[in-house]
Simulated scan of single mutants.
Amino acid sequence: MDMSSGVPLAQTMRPVRSIEQLCKRVTSILLTATLLCLSALAAVHASGDPLLDAYLEGVDLYRKGDLDAAIPKLRRAVELSEERNGDDSPELALDLNNLAEALRRAGQLPEAEKLLRRAYAIDQKQGEAGSAAAAATLNNLGLVLAAKGDQAGALNAHRAALAAAENSQGKDHPDTARAAYNLALAEAAAGDLEVAQALASRAAYVAERALGDRHPLTRQMRNTEARLRSMPRPSTAAVETAQLPKASPQPDLPKTATTEQARTPARKSGRTYAVQLVALRSESEIDAAWLALRQRYRRLGTTDRLPATFVDIEGRGRFYRLLVGPYMARADAEALCKGLKDDGGDCRVIIRN
């Protein structure tokens, strides 16, 4: 799926001293969503401030599609911003993002990646790694890495962007919906269609509640969700969890009991069981997977979700497990799992303690 169809994240405004600065803060990192106030300023206003003028001229040229002329202006804005604000200022990080976005659009990906990594290093140094600004930087970095063919890097960047958006804006904010949607596109590009669909569904649900069902963004997300739903899935012979949201096949977990031990009645051993529905690469994807599964399988409506746990698999990395339970008897957990498989899903019973 084309990663260029991703949507930009909104930028949290910092305190400003003028309407020009206000426009700049709102639209920084969001050149694809420049506000009307900027276009008006760029058309009629010469501030006498070289930095602001370079920025406004660059944005205006960018909006007109003249990247060859926009890039030198935005590059000059970066130079002046560094001179005025220092090499680790939040203002510089915003200007780096703007230049990087123009470079990405022009296909100059290596430099765009370098600038975005520098901007994120500034966010980290300023203690803003979990901020809305960092979410936007990581989102832009994900788009650049995807364009370079680095799917693993793009996934990591978009997962971090979603986590930062949730941290700074909350799970029900439109910007978090945008971050979830961009991650859905990255997951789809990597071939994980089920988790991509779950994320797109979550994004559309949040956007619909926040923006309404007729908003263009909501419609775009719903259309993507439908496209993902209609795309062919790998056969169950090739993928263990082809019918469940996933970031990869559910990993084989370390054995904690022998077959004979597993047959021991739970009440005699104090053992409890859970049903693992899916194992995901990112903890931030658990909520979306749970929402999608409950919508698809009615029998999950009477189950209780357990806190997510993780397991580290040598050579494969960390997986976060979506679990329901607990069950005192293994037979009860197996009955639920069998029902889910009869409904076309997949799962496995695990021992909790």
Rank of each mutant, 00 (worst) to 15 (best):
G191E: 03
D192I: 00
L193G: 00
E194N: 08
V195C: 01
V195H: 09
A196T: 02
A196H: 05
Q197E: 03
A198Y: 03
A198K: 00
L199C: 11
A200S: 08
S201Q: 03
S201A: 06
S201E: 08
R202C: 03
R202G: 01
A203P: 04
A203S: 15
A203V: 02
A204M: 04
A204H: 06
A204S: 07
V206P: 04
V206R: 03
V206E: 06
E208Y: 00
R209Q: 15
A210P: 11
L211I: 09
L211A: 13
L211R: 07
L211S: 02
G212Q: 03
D213H: 06
D213V: 03
D213S: 07
R214M: 04
R214F: 00
R214P: 03
H215C: 02
L217H: 04
L217I: 13
L217R: 13
R219V: 08
R219W: 04
R219L: 07
R219S: 02
R219A: 01
Q220N: 03
Q220R: 06
Q220K: 09
M221P: 09
M221I: 05
M221D: 10
R222P: 02
T224G: 01
E225F: 07
R227L: 12
R227M: 13
L228W: 00
R229V: 00
R229E: 01
R229Y: 00
S230R: 01
S230H: 06
S230T: 09
M231G: 05
P232K: 06
R233M: 02
R233K: 14
P234E: 06
T236V: 13
T236H: 01
A237E: 11
A237C: 07
A237M: 04
A237R: 07
A237S: 12
A237G: 07
V239S: 12
V239N: 10
E240I: 15
E240Q: 13
E240P: 01
E240H: 10
E240F: 08
T241R: 02
L244N: 10
L244Y: 05
L244A: 08
L244M: 14
P245L: 09
P245I: 15
K246S: 11
K246H: 08
K246L: 05
K246E: 05
S248G: 11
S248H: 10
S248D: 12
S248I: 10
Q250L: 12
Q250C: 10
Q250D: 14
Q250A: 07
P251K: 06
P251Q: 09
D252P: 09
P254Y: 06
P254G: 05
P254D: 15
K255T: 07
K255P: 15
T256Y: 04
T256R: 10
A257K: 09
A257Y: 09
A257R: 14
T258R: 14
T258I: 09
T258L: 14
T259V: 11
T259M: 13
E260L: 15
A262M: 14
A262Q: 14
R263Y: 14
R263H: 12
T264S: 09
T264V: 09
T264W: 07
P265D: 05
P265Y: 04
A266G: 14
A266V: 06
R267H: 13
R267C: 11
